[in-house]
Design a protein around this nucleic acid. Structure first.
Ligand code: FES
Ligand code: FES
Lengths: 172, 172
DNA sequence: TCAAACGCGGACTAATATAGTCCGCGTTAT
DNA sequence: ATAACGCGGACTATATTAGTCCGCGTTTGA
């Protein structure tokens, strides 16, 4: 299990479909079936994106999700934080205070400030977060669009549209 | 549970004691009791550092560990990789190939190269690793030494020396 | 010579996190 | 009224982490 979990992969891929979805507001089930992933699992990811203000939810029949702001104003870090919460790269156990030579309580100098090791880990985490903050959803969408055939985006939009109208139809 | 686990914290703190241990070669049990952590657990960490060529092991009674090369030539990244193995920050599930619009097998363009999302995560991981590689054990040792009282290093060395000689004594 | 302490490795356990399912609630369009 | 929607909580299975325990072969001081 990695630090950036599959929830993040699912979440970002979904958001990329929303970038190209035009005026539609696909449901989380639509997005799950479009990508062949578990609808129930995806349904646990989207409320987090909504609470973080990345997507806006439309309740009720014909409801779904749309981006809450332009893709160029959503960084990858925003998404990761929304989905993963504030999960540190390293959790210091403060073992520096447990030296056998210390009395109880340990001397003040032993726990003053941040441990040098901990500080190094925090710098590494910051470097990682900076790299994630440097890229936006719009950047990713451009990169993916360059790869797909010219008519692919339109095909997906059509597929989503058909699903949206079939909601009424299947209700007979 | 964080990506950089407590094994790393234990390992690096131990190595820092080795930097200041002079000519001694403390055992993993010595180092565990010096820091109030589990001897059995620490005994599972050191073989990894040894196989990575960071420490050298001396077997037999009176055996123990010493640094295999100067502290200035051991980066924090070396230690993390030795202890954690090659654990990626992000594991791509290749969901891009599972689009419902694809036939089976999916078109070649869908899986060509690295997914843009995956590439972003790899850049973030690289930034993290670069930050860890920028700091050596010697840097950390200097930072810690500045904090402790002037005679603390000598006290620890004495404590380790007493333990080393009591090994024979306790055998009666 | 022989026991004690060492490093090493494997089997084991407990607690936690991830991935995923299932169900019920209130809302909304047909 | 009903069916699909978002939301939330309870639940399960599996993997990882943290930690224990035991046995093997080596070294060395009594
Ligand atoms: S005490 Fe936690 S990293 Fe040093
Ligand atoms: S397919 Fe794995 S990140 Fe895009």
């Amino acid at each position: 299990m990695a630090h950036l979990t599959s929830r993040v992969e699912y979440g970002i891929h979904c958001l990329l479909w929303l970038v190209g979805a035009g005026e539609q507001q696909p449901s989380s089930r639509d997005l799950a079936e479009l990508q062949g992933i578990s609808p129930s699992f995806l349904a646990k990811i989207f409320p987090r994106l909504e609470k973080a203000g990345i997507v806006a939810a439309v309740p009720g029949l014909r409801g779904g999700y749309r981006l809450a702001r332009p893709a160029a104003q959503i960084t990858v870090l925003d998404i990761v934080d929304a989905i993963e919460g504030d999960k540190p790269l390293f959790e210091c156990q403060e073992i520096r205070t447990r030296c056998a030579l210390f009395d109880d309580p340990p001397p003040r100098w032993a726990s003053r400030g941040t441990c040098a090791i901990h500080a190094t880990m925090q710098r590494a985490e910051r470097a990682m977060r900076d790299a994630l903050a440097a890229e936006t959803l719009a950047d990713l969408a451009r990169a993916l669009e360059r790869k797909a055939p010219a008519d692919f985006g339109a095909s997906v939009e059509r597929w989503l549209g058909e699903r949206a109208s079939s909601r009424r139809g299947s209700a007979r």
